[in-house]
Structures are given as structure tokens and as C-alpha cells.
């Protein structure tokens, strides 16, 4: 059997906030296999965001071990971590984090800029991903000319453009209305069905119900880890809501 994509062993993270030590993670051991759709839940301060940041190599653990696709990411140099973020992980943020005054196409190209892909190939790959998320006709729009849902889809295209092994979504629907949230979740589900591993942080039960597995955090520890055999179908819910709106 293929080894899990993500393995963490007794992962800890401590930092100082205004002089007081904070134990954000107190030993988290989790395995996530390739192709899983995992929702990470927990109240604020539970350590779920810290866990996400460690998975995304945005931050280094204080202790323990983290292996991503067989590679020990817990003790890599800054440049090596940047390379992992560039090629292996795609981020989707709550507030989209698109560059302002920059077209959708150029926003999607951004990760390719940092791994030396020639301009022509950059355009072509970015265009393909934008078409994949259904924004083929909005390529030259700037973020301010796009709706929240469209902006988040640009962000997803950006996360996908370098063909990562893992999508990390931190509250991706936090800034969206219910209907748009469903559409974005439908897109993530669709990617997951195509084989992409998705890890999602949320505090909304409804959003978590689209995942196959829910890991709950409290006080820096995993308190619950269960599978959902029949996740909700976001596409179907979105279509249903659309009908309700039209009616």
C-alpha cells in the first residue's frame, strides 16, 4: 500500500505572545493519505490554523516530525521550504490574497514566476487552469472587477497551476455567502474526485460536511478524528439553492 501523503509525529509548536509562552500544538500525530478530503475543525485558539501553517511549510514546528510525500519537511532550509510551497502545496485563503491591480491571469501565473517557467508556457498553463475553474472569460479582469466567488476561484486556479500534491484551504468560504460557498466547495470536491488531496480548515459544521474525514482540535491536541461515509454533494446543493432563488 502506498504510504500516506502526510505524516506528522508528535508535532508541537510553541511561541511567545507579548512575553507569554503559548503552546499552540501539544503533540499532534496524524496521517493523511493521498486523495483524501479532510476538514480540520475546532474553536479559535485550538491550534487548527497553526497545524495548517505547518502542513503548508509556512512555519516550522518547535518539535516533532513532519513528512510530506516522504520528504522530511520539519528540518529543511528556508529556500527548500519555499520550493515545497511552490511545487507541492497550493494555498487557498479566506480573504483570497490576490494581488490588487493585477489581472486574474497574472495572479494565476505568480507561482510559475518563482520556478523559472518561460513566459509563453506560464500564460498557457495559467489560462488552462482559469478555464478549468470556469473563468475563461474573466482572464484579464482585475480582482476588484470580480465577485468574491470569482476571486476565490482565481485563487484556486493559482493554487492548482503548479500541479501540487496538496491543496490547503484556510476558511475558504469565510468571506462568501452561502450560495457562493457551495459553489466553491463544489469546485474543491470536483478537484478531490480528480485525485487531489484537500485539507480544509473551517469552523462551520456545514462546510465540514462536504469532506470525507473530520479532524477536530482543542487546546493544541486532536480530540476527534472520524470519517464521513456519505459527504454532502456541494454541486447538488448549489444547484438546489439556485432553483430556490429562481423560484
Amino acid at each position: 500500500m502506498e504510504p500516506p501523503l502526510i505524516i506528522t509525529r508528535r508535532l508541537t509548536k510553541n511561541y511567545h505572545l507579548e512575553g507569554y509562552p503559548v503552546h499552540a500544538l501539544r503533540g499532534v500525530s496524524v496521517e493523511i493519505g493521498a486523495g483524501e478530503f479532510v476538514a480540520v475543525m475546532g474553536p479559535s485558539g485550538s491550534g487548527k490554523s497553526t497545524f495548517m501553517n505547518l502542513l503548508g511549510c509556512l512555519d516550522r514546528p518547535s518539535g516533532g516530525e513532519y513528512l510530506l510525500a516522504g520528504e522530511r519537511a520539519s528540518d529543511l532550509s528556508g529556500d527548500a521550504l519555499a520550493a515545497i510551497r511552490n511545487r507541492r502545496v497550493g494555498f487557498v485563503f479566506q480573504n483570497f490574497n490576490l494581488l490588487p491591480r493585477t489581472s486574474a491571469l497574472e495572479n494565476v501565473e505568480l507561482p510559475l514566476l518563482y520556478c523559472g517557467v518561460p513566459a509563453a508556457e506560464r500564460h498557457q498553463r495559467a489560462r488552462a487552469k482559469l478555464e478549468e475553474v470556469g473563468l475563461g472569460d474573466r482572464m484579464h479582469h482585475q480582482p476588484s472587477q470580480l465577485s468574491g466567488g470569482q476571486q476565490q476561484r482565481v485563487a484556486i486556479a493559482r493554487a492548482l497551476v503548479n500541479d501540487p500534491v496538496l491543496i490547503l484551504a484556510d476558511e475558504p468560504t469565510g468571506a462568501l455567502d452561502t450560495h457562493t460557498s457551495c459553489e466553491v466547495m463544489a469546485l474543491l470536491q470536483q478537484l478531490n474526485r480528480g485525485g487531489m488531496t484537500v485539507v480544509l480548515v473551517t469552523h462551520e459544521q456545514e462546510i465540514a460536511s462536504f469532506a470525507h474525514r473530520v479532524i477536530s482540535f482543542r487546546d493544541g491536541r486532536v480530540v476527534e478524528d472520524h470519517r464521513i461515509d456519505q459527504p454532502n454533494d456541494a454541486a447538488a446543493m448549489a444547484a438546489q439553492r439556485q432553483q430556490e432563488l429562481e423560484a
Partner: peptide
């Protein structure tokens, strides 16, 4: 600062 953070998140190295 946020733009810098984003660039780093999508793979910019310190030297970039």
C-alpha cells in the same frame, strides 16, 4: 507586507 507574505506562500524565496 501581505503581498510579500503571499509571494512567499506561493514559493518566492527570500532572495526573490
Amino acid at each position: 507586507t501581505r503581498e510579500i507574505g503571499l509571494r512567499m506562500a506561493v514559493g518566492a524565496r527570500a532572495r526573490d
